[in-house]
C-alpha cells in the first residue's frame, strides 16, 4: 500500500515541469583496482539536456550504462523516473528501461535484422502492439529522420551516419521520455554529425524528450546546446539559434578522472579559467 502511494506520488512529481528525471547522488564505481567513477552527482531535469564531456576513458559512457542498469554502481544512489535503479535486478529494470532509449557508440544495430526490424524491434518483440500499427510507427519514425527509403536495407548497406540515425530511430520508436546518446557523432564527418545533432535537438524540443548527450566532440556539444527546433509557419521544422532561456536548459558536465570538474551552461564553460577545461576547449 505504502509502496503504491510512493509510486503514485513519484509519478505526480515527474509529471510536473522541472521535475528531476535522473538523479545521480555520490555514485562510485571501480573495476578491480581501476576506479572509473569516484564521486559523481548530478540531476537531469525533465525536458532538459545534460551534455557530458570528457576525454576518452574518463567514465562518460559508464554513467549511461549505470542509468540503463547495464552496469551497477558500487556506492551511491541513482534515480531514474522515480525508481531507484542502483538496487534493481535485471528483471526489475525492465519497466524502467521501457521509458529509456539509448543510442550506443557505432549504433549497435542488429546485423541480422533489416532497418525495419531494427527500428521496430521493441514494438515487434516486446510489446503487444498490432503488427500493422507497429509497422506504421516504424515508417513514421524513419520518415521523421529522413531514411524512409532505406527501410528494407540491412545495416551493412548503410553509411556510418545512416547507422547512427537508424539507431536514434530505434531508440525513439517506442516513445521513451529519456534518451541517452553515447558518442552519437564520433567518427562522422561534420555534415553528417550536424544531421545527427539536429535529430537530437528535434527530439528534445518537439517531442519533449529529456536527454543526456555523452561526447568529446565540442562542436556537436555546443551545437546541441545553442540551437533549438521550431516549427515554421509553413509547417516545416527549422533549427535556429536558441533563446537565452532555452540555452540554459542545456547544461554541461565535464568529467575528469571519475570526478565532475565542471558543471554549468555553455557560456560558463566557454568562460571557465580552469586550465584543463581551457586545454580541452582549445
Amino acid at each position: 500500500m505504502a509502496q503504491a502511494i510512493e509510486q503514485q506520488t513519484a509519478t505526480e512529481i515527474l509529471n510536473e515541469t522541472g521535475a528531476p528525471v535522473i538523479v545521480f547522488d555520490r555514485v562510485k564505481l571501480a573495476f578491480d583496482e581501476k576506479v572509473v567513477l569516484r564521486d559523481i552527482s548530478f540531476t537531469l531535469i525533465k525536458g532538459h539536456t545534460k551534455i557530458i564531456l570528457g576525454a576518452s576513458g574518463s567514465g562518460k559512457s559508464t554513467i549511461l550504462k549505470i542509468i540503463t542498469g547495464l552496469l551497477r554502481s558500487d556506492e551511491g544512489v541513482v534515480w531514474v523516473n522515480g525508481s531507484r535503479v542502483d538496487q534493481l535486478s535485471e528483471l526489475e529494470m525492465m519497466p524502467v528501461r521501457a521509458d529509456l532509449g539509448m543510442i550506443f557508440q557505432e549504433g549497435a544495430l542488429f546485423d541480422s535484422l533489416t532497418v525495419r526490424e531494427n527500428v521496430g524491434y521493441k514494438l515487434f518483440e516486446e510489446s503487444d502492439m498490432p503488427m500493422d500499427q507497429a509497422n506504421r510507427r516504424v515508417e513514421e519514425v524513419l520518415g521523421w529522420i529522413g531514411l524512409a527509403e532505406y527501410i528494407d536495407r540491412m545495416p551493412s548497406e548503410l553509411s556510418g551516419g545512416q547507422r547512427r540515425r537508424v539507431a536514434i530511430a530505434r531508440a525513439m520508436a517506442f516513445k521513451p521520455r529519456i534518451l541517452l546518446y553515447d558518442e552519437a557523432t564520433t567518427g562522422l564527418d561534420p555534415i553528417t554529425a550536424t544531421t545527427v545533432d539536429e535529430e537530437i535537438i528535434k527530439l528534445r524540443d518537439l517531442e519533449h524528450v529529456s536527454s543526456i548527450v555523452v561526447t568529446h566532440q565540442l562542436r556537436d556539444a555546443f551545437y546541441v546546446a545553442t540551437h533549438m527546433a521550431v516549427v515554421g509557419q509553413d509547417g516545416k521544422v527549422k533549427i535556429v539559434p536558441a533563446t537565452p532561456a532555452k540555452e540554459r536548459e542545456a547544461e554541461f558536465i565535464m568529467v575528469r578522472d571519475g570526478l565532475i570538474c565542471f558543471e554549468g551552461d555553455a557560456d560558463a564553460l566557454r568562460n571557465s579559467r580552469d586550465p584543463y577545461i581551457q586545454t580541452f576547449l582549445s
Binding site: 550504462k65 540503463t68 557505432e106 549497435a108 544495430l109 542488429f110 524491434y121 516486446e126
Partner: peptide, 14 residues
C-alpha cells in the same frame, strides 16, 4: 563486442 547484447538489454530483452 559491438554492444548488440547491451542494446538488447536496453531495449528490454533478456
Amino acid at each position: 563486442v559491438t554492444d548488440q547484447i547491451n542494446a538488447l538489454r536496453a531495449l528490454g530483452t533478456d
